[in-house]
Design a binder for these strands. Structure first.
Length: 279
DNA sequence: TCGTAGACTCGGCGTC
DNA sequence: CGCGGCCGAGTCTACT
């Protein structure tokens, strides 16, 4: 289910568990996981003998740095998640939708489970990484220091619904449907408010709410509605803190007005019609 | 009025 | 039917 907090939670857990372990082999079972069909068949040979030396994140992308200098980039899309299995467990014991596994020489493994098979992986040479993100025009990470109040306001100055802008990964990278709704509720901004007509004060509120809600999501270990799990199999608990997402008809935590559901940018959108006034 | 960029809409992608 | 993500194709519209 990954948005920025779930990806960050995953990255932090994986750093503790898989860095420095020697890779014995790898197998992919969903051809669409790798765009490159040759790589799909040869991923075992490609990774054998290598080690993960660092794990980074940009928006919703994970970057697995390899000692060989290459980078394996992964995107979990809607239902993907990484799990680390120890040598005693069988893969099927911890998940039945494993599409890709990297086996370590010590008997453990890194598993990528993805019910809907929307996830994607790329294995890139060092010089290919910058162009990978340039091609996608990916914006700065939502929590990076580059995304200041002034910068965010400038990026939101367009004639589009602010929610649609927040979901646009070229504006700022990492925000998805849950955290967009939650941060707009926190900032008291209507999801259909045009970016162009945001006041300076409103832009500052959005910036503050964005950082606050993403940090809270990380602190909670992510949101575990449906099938998102942390790499140890446990659940995050941000769903306990949700104010509006998928709470249509339930009372707004601030004013008790029933939460409304509309569709913005083809995505279910939840807001308080009293707290979040339209322009 | 024309051309263009940007915005919007829809369908698709596997699965439960 | 819905869904946390995102892409491509096609269409519309607003501006210069």
């Amino acid at each position: 289910m990954p948005e920025l907090p779930e990806v960050e939670t995953t990255v932090r857990a994986l750093r503790k568990k898989i860095l420095g372990r020697k890779i014995k082999g790898a197998v992919a079972t969903a051809p669409q996981l790798f765009h490159d069909k040759k790589l799909f068949r040869n991923i075992g040979r490609a990774l054998r003998g290598d080690k993960f030396s660092a794990i980074d994140r940009h928006g919703k992308y994970l970057l697995f740095r390899l000692r060989s200098g290459r980078t394996m980039i992964a995107h979990m899309k809607l239902t993907g998640h990484f799990l680390v299995k120890d040598k005693k467990q069988k893969a099927n014991d911890i998940h039945k939708h494993v599409r890709f596994r990297t086996d370590f020489a010590d008997g453990g493994a890194l598993l990528f489970s993805d019910l809907r098979k929307f996830g994607r992986c790329w294995l890139l040479a060092p010089n290919e990484v910058p162009e990978f993100f340039d091609d996608r025009k990916l914006g700065h990470d939502a929590l990076s220091k580059e995304v200041s109040e002034v910068y965010l306001r400038a990026k939101l100055r367009r004639n589009r619904a602010v929610k649609s802008l927040l979901l646009d990964q070229t504006v700022v990278a990492g925000i998805g449907n849950i955290y967009a709704d939650e941060l707009l509720w926190m900032a008291k901004i209507h999801p259909l408010h045009k970016g162009l007509s945001l006041s300076e004060h409103e832009a500052v509120e959005i910036h503050k709410a964005m950082r606050d809600i993403l940090h809270r999501g990380i602190k909670a270990g992510g949101t575990s509605i449906r099938d998102y799990r942390k790499p140890d199999g446990s659940s995050g608990y941000f769903q306990m803190l949700r104010a509006v997402y998928q709470r249509a008809g339930q009372p707004c935590p601030r004013c008790k007005t029933p939460i409304k559901r509309i569709v913005v940018a083809q995505r279910g959108t939840h807001y308080c019609p009293k707290c979040q006034r339209k322009n």
